[in-house]
């Protein structure tokens, strides 16, 4: 579908992720949460699309839209992923999808699990999770405002969150050009010069080094 999925399967195959200095496995003595063993169970129950282990303490799984909220409820109530770290969206305009990411944290195992779900960009909507975590309503309010993703039933989802009197398309969508909007609206002060850093460095600063690149 896109590059992330490919990487996801690769990650599952190769085992440990590309952890760097963030202390992969160095800190805690004893075994880490063997999240890989849970994948088949989840796949049976919630028809997991793909999974990927990024670090020992971080994994991403992708589920279909229909089972997402059931899966998250299962994780919260039965698997100890009781802490909703954040909930956000990524805009893949070229694929016509929004990828929602629910990041959950398990304090018992000290493990992060990102639950991802692709929803169509057209007429975007998703089931609400405000009944699971009250602050889910805030995230949904923000997503509605910034991406135009609707969450029917979420309290106050139609109220503006950070913007006031916004009439354009939701600003975090990829097709919204913030520079153009800014120049059109806010009277840029003349005198700002922009150099393309690549060109500028080639010409002015490192004429010799530029050749190597």
């Amino acid at each position: 579908m896109n590059s992330i999925s490919a990487a996801a399967s690769a990650g599952t195959g190769s085992g440990s992720g590309t952890g760097t200095e963030t202390g992969t496995g160095t800190g805690l003595s004893g075994e880490r949460f063997p999240v890989r063993e849970r994948f088949p169970v989840w796949k049976d129950k919630f028809s997991l699309v793909s999974s990927m282990i990024q670090r020992q303490d971080l994994a991403f799984v992708q589920v279909p839209m229909q089972t997402t909220v059931a899966f998250i409820t299962h994780l919260r109530d039965l698997e100890g992923y009781a802490h909703l770290v954040f909930f956000t969206a990524i805009d893949y305009i070229e694929d016509g999808i929004f990828r929602l990411t629910y990041m959950l944290h398990n304090y018992r195992r000290h493990h992060d699990l990102g639950v991802q779900v692709d929803i169509p960009r057209e007429d975007a909507g998703m089931e609400s999770i405000h009944h699971l975590w009250p602050h889910g309503a805030t995230y949904q309010r923000e997503l509605k405002e910034m991406y135009g993703i609707d969450f029917p039933g979420s309290p106050g989802v139609d109220e503006s969150f950070v913007l006031e009197g916004w009439h354009d398309i939701p600003p975090m969508r990829r097709e919204f050009d913030t520079k153009e909007y800014s120049e059109k609206t806010y009277y840029p002060r003349p005198g700002r010069v922009t150099y393309d850093p690549t060109e500028y460095m080639k010409e002015k600063l490192y004429p010799s080094e530029a050749e190597t690149w």
Binding site: I4, A7, Q54, F60, P197, M201, W213
Partner: peptide, 16 residues
């Protein structure tokens, strides 16, 4: 690498 052309490989992560 030259930071002006620094292409970061595909992937996603969460650091805290």
């Amino acid at each position: 690498p030259n930071v002006l052309h620094w292409k970061v490989p595909t992937g996603q992560t969460y650091v805290q």
